[in-house]
Write a protein that binds this DNA or RNA. Sequence first.
DNA 1: GTATATGCAAAGGGTTTGCACGGTT
DNA 2: AACCGTGCAAACCCTTTGCATATAC
Lengths: 139, 139
Amino acid sequence: MSTEWEMRLRSGGYRITPQRQLVLESVERLAHGTPEEILAEVQKTASGVNLSTIYRNLEVLEEVGLVTHAHIGHGAPTYHSIDDHVHIHLVCDRCGAVQSLDAGIAEPFLNDLRGATGFVTDVSHVALHGTCAACGALG
Amino acid sequence: MSTEWEMRLRSGGYRITPQRQLVLESVERLAHGTPEEILAEVQKTASGVNLSTIYRNLEVLEEVGLVTHAHIGHGAPTYHSIDDHVHIHLVCDRCGAVQSLDAGIAEPFLNDLRGATGFVTDVSHVALHGTCAACGALG
DNA sequence: GTATATGCAAAGGGTTTGCACGGTT
DNA sequence: AACCGTGCAAACCCTTTGCATATAC
């Protein structure tokens, strides 16, 4: 018998490899991992794994719908397991603080957007930038 | 007498240089320019200007409030004159199309966000990603 | 005259790619 | 046996930085 993730990969025409499995497990374990962080996590188990393998596998895992990524700051993207709660990131451009909140708050806006333009938006894909409450209070 | 932009620079403690002026004019002329594109535009007039000068001056011009930038795709950011209409970019992750629309549509959402979290959002700073009407119609 | 701006070249972070070898099917 | 996946190293794009020279003030 095959697990869910193995079937996903197989039906996409991809093979099951130890590296693939380790990358997937690491993404799940880290919850918010950059490629470098995922590499470090994978290397705890298999020290020989290369960064390029991480990138290639993240791409594959994303294509078959097992992970997604979001762009938070200006640096590397962070990867998530697909069944995490969908959330928005708010990045304060003054102090750099990042806060997450449930994506539900954006629903009415996304509906308006879809109504006006037909565009279906994935709000969680990029963080919103601005000024947080604390920094705003400083003037 | 000094022009508006000269005063802005001076009151920030910056000097007026030909390069500075050319960068500002190029941003205004291009409307949506990446640093490379701005360099090309500047070099039409002054071929000796260096890319690092473009970067340094975009930073200065942004600090004194004469230009802003937005992140549209995964590549370089695009710079705008500060008095352009504020707009949101919608990027289709399937076909890559980019559409602009007035930021007004996001007002209620931004108010909700501020109410819930105190966060003041600049929606125009990063593009929203998703699926455009045409691609969505294809299933 | 003095501090700031510039050009140049080198280095940096993040990511992709070509190639030969090894592993999955 | 055929092909896909991997490791390694080099290349890539975008951006920043150190340093000596030039220029705005």
